[in-house]
Amino acid sequence: MTIIHRFLKTPEGLAGALLLAAFVLVALAAPFFFPRDPLSIAGPALLRPFQDWSLPLGTDRLGRDVLAGIFHGARTSLAVSLAAAAASIAVGAIVGTLAGFGGGWTDEVLMRITDAFQTVPGFLLALAFVSVVGPSLGVVVAAIALSAWTGPARIARAEVLSIRERDYVASARVAGMHPLEIAFREVLPNALPPVLALASVIVAQAILVEAALSFLGLGDPNRVTWGGMIAEGRTVLRSAPFLSIVPGIALVLTVLGVYLAGEGAVETAAKRRSLA
């Protein structure tokens, strides 16, 4: 695969790919290395890292294994961010396509709704939504998607506006195709690439928003999350700073990895276009 090869040749792409691979491996490996419930007590409380090799990163205030928390937290972050990105891109692409292809008052109404969602700060919207509906994994995903779909919607609409003037759309009309089929079978697939380019930004954003919600105690209470771990560690920040620092580092590295991979992809696409 020459595209992947070229992607890995950009320094951003390589660094991003390595960080992301580590993140995904950790998330997938969690149930094998740490089959026990990561919320259960594993040893003495507040054990420092690198003291006991069965608990390499130590334990928290309640004696829970920090490394197990990191592994299972990666799982939560991965699940939430992928689901939120998929949901917001799907909703955004559909709304943007309907607005751009429908035109007229359909466009007007849908874009005013998009404006309304965009003017409210995304995090506040998520915060309000989770506070009202109650914290669970699905609600957190919906809360993040609620603010993140507007970007894909705008980009999809702009793309659709240019595509709908193409001859092949006229040709589909001449063939007697239903407008909805034209919008979703002929136009939408061709409008998707620039929308998908937003995925990395949304994933990174989703990881951070999920962590922030958990930090505020609005994450799913039955799951370990990095944001929740950082919040837990805060109460003993002076005596055991590692409890906040370790999940903090995991968070930073993961978000960095996603951003770098996104940059690498943009770089690769740009190079390909200039070669073509």
């Binding site: 193409r166 001859d167 092949y168 006229a170 040709s171 589909a172 009309r173 001449v174 063939a175 007697g176 195709m177 239903h178 002929e186 697939p189 061709n190």
Partner: peptide
């Protein structure tokens, strides 16, 4: 749409007249 079966068109640029996929 039904009437379009009897009335057809061929476009100038055969590349642009087809969905790229």
């Amino acid at each position: 749409r039904a009437a379009r079966a009897r009335l057809q068109m061929v476009f100038q640029d055969p590349q642009a007249a087809f969905n790229p996929r």
